[in-house]
Design a protein around this nucleic acid. Structure first.
Lengths: 111, 111
DNA sequence: TCATTATATACCCATATGGGAATATGTCAA
DNA sequence: TTGACATATTCCCATATGGGTATATAATGA
């Protein structure tokens, strides 16, 4: 089996920095493709293609309006990423690092 | 340019579910390769190869001890992922969704 | 030295990638 | 109908992937 496609899930879709930038730039605002092209200063096909990936994993919702297509971030689909990474957060503090050392020392003393 | 290598950064490394599982299983505990092989019930080369990727992006630290190699999660490298996804969190609550609708209605009324 | 244990590496292959350029589709307005 | 605008799609290619199997490296103990 090869690497899983970028369209397989949000984790893969978001591994590409350009797609993260799109989500950042959009924020909570609905944007047309052209607005994004201007804001990001990328070629239009590039924006469309990345939006296509984001749409397939439902990280963005598309809404047609005349000849424009308006996109907005679907925050729900970012939840799993947040929920996966958050449990590790409790080990980040320096105090925890020190606690860890203390426990190691105590372990050795027990012997 | 092709897709960026899995070893390019933690975002790419963690896009693979098996590598996320390794980090979950390790938690805050130092583990030898064989312990992981037993805990995960995967072929040993598979574990080693995924650990190799995680090591290259420094998501794990390696510590040799006799013929064993002990690995532990390097929580620091997970921070950027947490920090990237967290700002979107404020838009997750239902109340915000409703607020958004209210604002849309107000906008229409202005016209 | 040799056998054993612990781990890493090499080889194979089908598959998707992202960028660029060109072109297609779709929708409006006159 | 025709042209202009907005967006999507197609074609190209070098490159890395993850799984499986086999083998290499490294460290230990007898």
């Amino acid at each position: 089996m090869a690497r899983r496609p970028t369209t397989h899930d949000p984790f893969n879709a978001v591994a590409e920095p350009k797609r993260r930038m799109i989500l950042e730039v959009m924020g909570s605002t609905e944007r047309s493709v052209n607005e994004l092209v201007v804001l990001l200063d990328w070629p239009q096909p590039m924006v469309s293609k990345h939006l296509g990936v984001l749409k397939k994993v439902e990280l963005v919702k598309e809404h047609r309006q005349g000849r424009q297509r308006l996109y907005r971030v679907n925050m729900e689909k970012l939840k799993p990423i947040h929920e996966w990474v958050t449990p590790f957060e409790k080990y980040w503090s320096e105090s925890y690092e020190r606690l860890d050392e203390v426990l190691e020392i105590l372990k050795k003393k027990e012997k």
